[in-house]
Amino acid sequence: MAVELKVLFVGDAEPDVKLIARELRRVGFAPTWQRVETPETLRAALLREHWDLVISDTSLAGLDVMHALETTRFAAPDTPFIVVSGRLVESAGRQAIQAGASDSISKDDLGLLGPAVVRALQRTPEVGSIAQLLLATQELERRRIARALHDELGQQLMALRLMLESPHDSAAAIALVDQALAQTRDFAIELWPTVLDDLGLGAALRWLASRHTRGSLAFDVAVEGVPRMAFAVETACFRIAQEAITNIERHARASRVEIALRRTGDELELEIRDDGTGFDADAAWSRARGASIGLFAMRERAALAGGRLDILSQPGRGTTVRLRFPPRSLR
């Protein structure tokens, strides 16, 4: 099921519009659109109906991107505005971002359009439920895995075929098969961790920590008598923990991570705490943006499963991600 998206294109090149629409379809959207190319038709379209997104070219004669942005901000101030620019006019895109545009993408790198659209829509809840945004994010992830299968596993299998077609070193061929098998297992685990099905959330959290233990980052996982729970709750806990650990590795410069899963009264509580650099949590929530799921979507993932997510952090004092589920959500 694709995510429906009403797009107003500002530009005079229909082939460009079709190329952008095709890219949107590739990453999980079902766009319907109208193209305008004058200030009058842009203003009329914005006032006549609601649009989920405005995408503007930078090379339109008679309607420059700054004028288009200003018109959109006046007529539909909550509508995301993304600039798609040619190589020679990328400076116009940067200028538009400074003036309030959601993002700027080069026509030569439309692969970045999908993540840019998801980020923009995350800041406009009226577009639809977060479930729809998660669907679009899923499509981006599937595309990434498909490319990895083609570029990594596919090349390994092709090399193995060449070995089998000519005199070869059997030890080298066996080593290549082992690499391909390991790569296949990693891809399968990325799609779904079977340990969560087989052994439950506590074991899955220990397994997750073991996969991320490297260098100076140490993990302490404590699970206190938690039985099996509803599928949605276990999945939400695991995916939020996964995202939190990824954020720690990328941004926190932490040396230690503590994961605690426990029952507090009748509630279930999952806590991920690090000793890293921390950040201004209030400012991060106000932005609620991210390249993948992001903080906003983590909170909404928890809400969809019946829980509540809180993130506590201050610069220099580490970060705590706390997820709670009331009794009615656990059954």
Results as ranks from 00 to 15, higher is better:
residue 131 A to G: 12
residue 131 A to T: 07
residue 134 L to C: 10
residue 134 L to R: 05
residue 135 L to P: 01
residue 136 A to H: 00
residue 136 A to Y: 02
residue 137 T to S: 14
residue 138 Q to G: 08
residue 139 E to K: 01
residue 140 L to F: 02
residue 140 L to I: 12
residue 141 E to T: 01
residue 142 R to H: 08
residue 142 R to Y: 07
residue 142 R to L: 15
residue 142 R to A: 15
residue 143 R to N: 05
residue 144 R to I: 10
residue 145 I to A: 14
residue 146 A to L: 11
residue 146 A to E: 08
residue 146 A to P: 00
residue 147 R to L: 14
residue 148 A to F: 11
residue 149 L to T: 07
residue 150 H to N: 12
residue 151 D to M: 09
residue 151 D to E: 11
residue 152 E to W: 07
residue 152 E to I: 12
residue 152 E to K: 00
residue 154 G to P: 01
residue 155 Q to M: 10
residue 156 Q to A: 11
residue 156 Q to M: 15
residue 157 L to R: 01
residue 157 L to A: 06
residue 158 M to R: 06
residue 159 A to L: 11
residue 160 L to F: 03
residue 161 R to A: 15
residue 163 M to H: 00
residue 164 L to I: 09
residue 165 E to C: 11
residue 165 E to S: 13
residue 166 S to N: 14
residue 166 S to Q: 13
residue 166 S to V: 06
residue 167 P to K: 01
residue 167 P to W: 03
residue 168 H to D: 13
residue 168 H to C: 15
residue 169 D to C: 08
residue 170 S to W: 03
residue 171 A to T: 14
residue 171 A to C: 06
residue 172 A to Q: 13
residue 173 A to D: 10
residue 174 I to V: 14
residue 174 I to C: 11
residue 176 L to G: 13
residue 176 L to D: 06
residue 177 V to T: 14
residue 178 D to S: 10
residue 179 Q to C: 15
residue 179 Q to F: 07
residue 180 A to E: 09
residue 180 A to C: 08
residue 180 A to T: 01
residue 181 L to T: 09
residue 182 A to G: 11
residue 183 Q to L: 13
residue 183 Q to K: 11
residue 184 T to A: 15
residue 184 T to F: 06
residue 185 R to E: 15
residue 187 F to Y: 11
residue 187 F to H: 14
residue 188 A to W: 03
residue 189 I to G: 14
residue 189 I to V: 12
residue 190 E to S: 13
residue 191 L to R: 02
residue 191 L to T: 08
residue 192 W to Q: 03
residue 193 P to T: 02
residue 193 P to V: 03
residue 194 T to S: 13
residue 195 V to T: 01
residue 196 L to F: 04
residue 196 L to W: 02
residue 197 D to R: 00
residue 197 D to A: 13
residue 197 D to C: 04
residue 198 D to C: 05
residue 198 D to S: 08
residue 198 D to K: 00
residue 199 L to Y: 08
residue 200 G to K: 00
residue 200 G to W: 11
residue 201 L to G: 01
residue 201 L to H: 00
residue 201 L to V: 07
residue 202 G to K: 01
residue 203 A to T: 05
residue 205 L to G: 04
residue 205 L to D: 00
residue 206 R to G: 10
residue 206 R to A: 13
residue 207 W to C: 06
residue 207 W to D: 12
residue 208 L to A: 08
residue 209 A to T: 02
residue 210 S to N: 05
residue 210 S to R: 01
residue 210 S to L: 04
residue 212 H to A: 13
